[in-house]
């Protein structure tokens, strides 16, 4: 721990708390989940970085979107994301959420996930190795430090646009808006 850490802890203890205890939602959204069990068990041990899986989204602040997102999963992802308390961070894992990856011409997978929910960082590759998860976590620390992991703020700000995109793909959502949407 360098000298600055202590100052940071005194200045913004809550932020440092969020940063070093990232609790990930346990949600297997795609095939990227295959590298998550090795990462959280003895050999790679993500707990060194403060990353732990949690059972419910209500207690989580990190959402790892592991792999391709089909239209049906998108509904579950939005619901899970909206249930998480703020501040919350999302990381897209693998090439598929970025731009569709190798399913670029599939009729049932989402091509750009950041058009439906805000994403703070991406891990490219198919499959990214466990080390890549840890690199992403340390990058996320830097972003949190600089207040640049602001996905949840962008979600508030552009909620109307996100909601419009979500409704377009899912043909109407069966739950009320999370934030008030002004009539335009």
């Amino acid at each position: 721990m360098d000298r600055n850490q202590l100052v940071k802890w005194l200045k913004a203890p809550a932020k440092m708390g969020h940063k070093y205890s990232l609790h990930a939602v346990y949600f297997c959204t795609g095939c990227g989940i295959i590298e998550v069990p090795p990462s959280i068990t003895a050999r790679w041990d993500a707990e060194r970085f403060g990353v732990l899986p949690t059972a419910t989204p209500r207690q989580a602040n990190l959402f790892l979107i592991t792999g391709y997102v089909s239209v049906k999963t998108l509904r579950a992802i939005i619901r899970t994301y909206e249930q998480m308390p703020e501040p919350k961070y999302t990381v897209g894992f693998g090439s598929c959420p970025i731009n569709g990856g190798m399913y670029w011409d599939s009729y049932n997978t989402i091509k750009h996930l950041d058009r439906y929910i805000p994403i703070d960082g991406w891990i490219a590759g198919c499959m990214p190795r466990p080390e890549a998860i840890f690199v992403a976590v340390t990058h996320l620390w830097t972003l949190i430090d600089k207040d640049m992991a602001d996905g949840y703020k962008r979600y508030r700000k552009h909620y109307a646009a996100y909601r419009a995109n979500q409704e377009k793909v899912l043909r109407g959502l069966d739950w009320p808006p999370l934030f008030p949407v002004e009539e335009q």
């Binding site: 569709g100 670029w104 011409d105 599939s106 009729y107 049932n108 989402i110 091509k111 750009h112 950041d114 058009r115 805000p118 962008r154 700000k157 552009h158 646009a161 996100y162 995109n165 377009k168 793909v169």
Partner: peptide
């Protein structure tokens, strides 16, 4: 979608291409 006359590339271009990015300006 599995019928031969369903063109998935055309569908992807028409449908997913029509969804705008959000908040790019900031």
């Amino acid at each position: 979608p599995f019928r031969k006359d369903f063109d998935t590339r055309q569908y992807v271009e028409d449908f997913f291409g029509s969804i705008p990015p959000v908040g790019e300006e900031d």
